[in-house]
Simulated assay, not measured.
Amino acid sequence: MTAPSSADSPRDSPGLDGTDAPAGDQSSLTKRLLAECQQLRETVEDQQEIIEKQQQTITDQVSRINALEDRVDDLEDDSEKTRDIARSASAKAEQVAADTDQQEDAEQLPQGVDPSSSPLDFFANCQQSKVKELFVEQSNRANTYRAICVAKRWPEFAQRRTDGSGIFFTRDHLETALTAHLGKQPHRQTIHRVWDQLVELGGDDVRVKRRQVGRKQEPKELLTMDMDTAEGLLDSQYLGLDLLEATGGKTRTGGVTPVVTEVTG
């Protein structure tokens, strides 16, 4: 009988490295690979579960932080209200005890509180929400309120003098400040009216000057304040004194001057 040719002889399948491997070894290798795949799949599933738990933990922590921040805001509001009530009560007690005969036609301020130097100084030092209620909600004088708000934001928008002695607003500065206050570009007429209100409210505290950089340039108008006046707008010294209550736009600020009357705008 003729021996089978090499082409007819059964041969083992090639191994993974290109060499022939017995069928039994191939089966063992396949099982091992399947087992490793299963183990990897389980590891991935475990890691996914851990990640989901961590994400849930992060979500819970964020919710707690937000709740704590809200609580802090509430406490700060309550604290501010409590301080206002306490200051108001103290001020009223001192006003009742004051000898009003010593100050003709002026409302007595509590000890240690100075009278304002101008209507602008007075309104800037009162509680802003009450100033807004007076000029915007009660009397439709929004430009007056805007002028007060812009003046208080001088650290952001006004130009400081090089020697540090004061600050000034140009109309461009005023326009930028109004844009920030309103959240949109103000009308030209609004800029003009707020400018006029700053002049009117400022009294002797605000001066109008003209500056010309070059001969060919048009002179620019400036609203100027000395640094003591500007810093005084940020003192908040009349918070809690209830000086705006039932005024109808005519508010005495203590001392002999100023008497705030008939502010337009």
Rank of each mutant, 00 (worst) to 15 (best):
Arg83Ala: 10
Ile85Phe: 09
Ala86Asn: 11
Arg87Ser: 08
Ala91Val: 06
Ala91Cys: 05
Lys92Leu: 08
Ala93Ile: 12
Glu94Leu: 04
Glu94Gln: 15
Glu94Gly: 05
Ala97Leu: 07
Ala97Pro: 02
Thr100Gly: 00
Asp101Met: 06
Gln103His: 09
Ala106Trp: 11
Glu107Phe: 10
Glu107Pro: 02
Leu109Ala: 06
Gly112Thr: 04
Asp114Tyr: 07
Pro115Gln: 09
Ser116Leu: 07
Ser116Ile: 04
Ser117Gly: 08
Pro119Cys: 05
Pro119Asn: 09
Leu120Thr: 11
Ala124His: 14
Ala124Arg: 14
Asn125Trp: 02
Cys126Phe: 05
Gln127Val: 08
Gln127Leu: 03
Lys130Asp: 15
Val131Pro: 00
Lys132Arg: 14
Glu133Leu: 05
Phe135Arg: 06
Glu137Pro: 02
Glu137Met: 07
Gln138Val: 00
Gln138Lys: 14
Asn140Pro: 02
Arg141Glu: 07
Arg141Trp: 04
Arg141Gly: 00
Tyr145His: 15
Arg146Cys: 09
Arg146Ala: 13
Val150Arg: 01
Ala151Pro: 12
Ala151Glu: 15
Arg153Leu: 06
Trp154Ser: 11
Pro155Asp: 13
Arg161Gln: 10
Arg161Trp: 10
Thr162Val: 09
Thr162Leu: 09
Ser165Arg: 12
Ser165Tyr: 11
Gly166Cys: 13
Gly166Arg: 14
Gly166Pro: 13
Thr170His: 04
Thr170Asn: 06
